[in-house]
């Protein structure tokens, strides 16, 4: 499966009240075009989707927070994995769509092909980690995505996806609009000080 196909599949599984943080580049575009809005679409800050997801999960403990990231982005902010594992927020889920390349910048390789994600993530202290290939495996991917939402506690799902992905047009919301629409759409109110 392509990364975008996994995200499309996920659209049928989501309840609609989840909060999603999407890593910059193709993943953000795909989440923007293929999943319900509004969500947090990162335009830059490569390496920070897990940390944004951690912050969001701490301020919204009643909501399910799902981080969708590519492998390059995950690897750049690897330290955040250990911070998340240390706490670990009950309401946080992380999906790593691993195509072993920096797809947005033209397909340059990451070092992902030699990394054992399951060992790395388990070793960091995350109990619930699942790693699978999506190649000719839509049924299992579907099952894993359902389980990710159903099961309680911090969970990380690593999915190998095809390198060739679907190119989508850019996000037409300015980041300041993304923040406003997210707050409005998810009915987030501020305490006055």
């Amino acid at each position: 499966m392509k990364g975008a196909e996994v995200i499309s599949l996920f659209s049928e599984i989501l309840q609609g009240n989840e909060m999603i943080v999407a890593s910059n580049g193709n993943v953000s575009r795909q989440v923007y075009h293929l999943l319900n809005k509004p969500q947090i679409y990162l335009r830059g800050s490569m390496g920070l989707p897990l940390s944004v997801g951690l912050g969001l999960s701490l301020s919204q403990p009643e909501k399910k927070v799902i981080v969708i990231t590519g492998d390059g982005n995950f690897l750049m902010g690897l330290g955040s994995l250990t911070t998340i594992a240390h706490f670990p927020p009950e309401n946080l889920r992380i999906i790593i769509l691993d195509n072993e390349i920096y797809a947005t910048t033209g397909g340059q390789p990451t070092v992902s092909s030699t990394l054992n994600y399951k060992l790395l993530i388990k070793g960091s202290g995350v109990e619930n980690v699942y790693s699978l290939s999506s190649i000719n495996n839509e049924k299992e991917v579907n099952k894993s995505l359902i389980k990710l939402l159903k099961q309680g506690g911090l969970q990380i799902l690593h999915i190998k996806v095809e390198r060739d992905d679907i190119e989508l047009v850019n996000i037409d919301w300015h980041p300041t609009e993304i923040t406003k629409k997210f707050h409005f759409g998810h009915k987030i109110h501020f305490k006055s000080s």
Partner: peptide, 15 residues
């Protein structure tokens, strides 16, 4: 930078 990311996510959640 991770700290700035966490603080940003916390504010997305309204805190």
């Amino acid at each position: 930078d991770e700290a700035i990311g966490i603080a940003s996510g916390y504010y997305f959640g309204g805190e």
